[in-house]
Design a binder for these strands. Sequence first.
DNA 1: CGCGGTTTTGAGTTACATCAACATGCGTGG
DNA 2: CCACGCATGTTGATGTAACTCAAAACCGCG
Lengths: 210, 210
Amino acid sequence: MKVAKTPSEPLNLAHGDALPFAALRHVWRLESGALRINRVLPDGEMELMSIALPGDLLGVDRLTGAEDASHTYAITPAQLSQVRIPSAETVRVLQTAYRTARQRCVDMVALRSGSVPDRVRRLLLLLAESNNPSQDAASSALPSLREMADIVGSAHETVSRVIGSLKHLELLSERRAQSGTFRVQSLRDCRFTAGMTSSSLPLRLRAVAA
Amino acid sequence: MKVAKTPSEPLNLAHGDALPFAALRHVWRLESGALRINRVLPDGEMELMSIALPGDLLGVDRLTGAEDASHTYAITPAQLSQVRIPSAETVRVLQTAYRTARQRCVDMVALRSGSVPDRVRRLLLLLAESNNPSQDAASSALPSLREMADIVGSAHETVSRVIGSLKHLELLSERRAQSGTFRVQSLRDCRFTAGMTSSSLPLRLRAVAA
DNA sequence: CGCGGTTTTGAGTTACATCAACATGCGTGG
DNA sequence: CCACGCATGTTGATGTAACTCAAAACCGCG
């Protein structure tokens, strides 16, 4: 007896779309874009748990026998493809899932360490590098400011000011809502000075302030 | 030919002791205490990666084929026991390791969300609950203030003020250097008011401030 | 006893949140 | 086609949580 659906149909998520609950019966690989993985609290609130970047596996929890109480949605347009797992491969899948879980833990700590400009910088680099490996001027879809603020643990107004400073420093150009292209290498190397988050300082000074 | 060492010798670490590099050829289970897991940067600096609590497995990375660039040390006196892994059990070990990695990721985000008093509260609860499950007045070895501050991402002076407030609220008693006993249930339920971190406010007001 | 690590306390400063407008784009329906 | 919400992004004024700096008290220990 044949299964009706072709198993390897890719899955596209627009900005904000949730990963359908039914999809978690399978394992998926994120091909492009970025996801946010949330923990659902008893009172229905959703709390940040981790993010997923291209290459990450989704739906591995089921392989561990755990009931998955997570809720996942796209913070930039994302494409997933289904992964068939021969049972002989289970170990290998668990190994890589474990390793990336570890790595994402490191990332999450880094996204909440240091000044807000630094945290935003790290987030942008994560997004850019994982979607355009080895390109200097990477144009990338970006999450909304509120999303970014929530991930790095700050206020969206502050993120706006940081992004504004980056524009002035010409580390980021072609800025539109939820997209932008930035100079990856310079962004990676730069260290920020004070003043980038102050609202009482005019923007043109903010980016240069000693 | 017999191996000289008995394989199941437990391992005790005092406050500050590092998990010996050689130990990572085996898998260990943390029986009591708490560890801090660091990532070693190219320049030799150590960055917080995660923490380990009783029940967690150490040295799983080797099972995934990864070279382990982590450095682990005890933040409270800890005891580990070696875990023998029949190869048939590899999958099961990876499953639980994956799940706790996920959980620690959640914990790390929580330890860096919200006000510093809340973060300290969460850290204390993690330590107390994992070492004395289901006891209300749990006395527990604590990390140094600098350690706690580094984990929650704040200054140790601020943590000192928070702890001081907790003493005044009688959520914590018998406070000595790197130890204390606190009322787990009350600590779990309580929500803080402002003023706990202000240095210009006298302590007796801090704990009650509206 | 003096010495290094931990903890405490205070005074002064600041990075960032909060609050409050306002601008802009986009889809939907009249 | 415009009017209208509604989400996103920008900008400024103001307040404060928490940092930095400085100093002292408190250990346990060789």
